[in-house]
Amino acid sequence: MRRLIQILAFVLAGPAVAQVQGVELEEPVLMPAFAFSNELEENFTQDDLKDAWTLIMFGFLTCPDVCPFTLGNLEAAVAETGMRVRPDNVPQVVFISVDPERDAPWVSEYAKFFHPDFESFTGERAQINTLIEATDSFYRLMEPDADGYYEVQHTSSVSVIAPDGTLRAKLQPPFDPGLTAEFLARLQIAYRKEMTQ
């Protein structure tokens, strides 16, 4: 998180409540090669980052609270973003399960529940670790209990990848839809400015 220095704070109207919905990276980070898939044999690789904005969330499917809440809010945030940016700049949303052992058989269905265009994938541990590291994210599988059940800790923020395949920002909880959309729209304006310079 040391790179996440330049903070764009959006202040809620009303009382002095500062709610940070996103943090822009000081320097863009190029994403490495990676390959994920799902049980429908759909793939997600670094090539899918080209020419589109992408929001990547890490999680696991045995997650009854944080993961569904985040995806639900992202659905609302992306809908809001759609009212502020051109259709081809509406971000694609990708959920990566860091728990392939439990989730691989039906991972594709998860993100679709929140929006038909959302996609979810998982992959080999090495691939997961590659993308986790590249996005400065974190996860940990906890010790199984007597029933073999285990918890998974994971980064709560969402990585924002620009159409040039670079990580540009992190979205943070609570993912307020309006403020998140505002953050993404501003990020895109800054990006286009940079590209035309």
Partner: peptide
């Protein structure tokens, strides 16, 4: 099964216990 659980987000890490 059913359990009482606590979700938490601290330092950008989501946990459940």
């Amino acid at each position: 099964m059913a359990h009482i659980h606590m979700s938490d987000i601290k330092n950008d890490i989501a946990t459940m216990s």
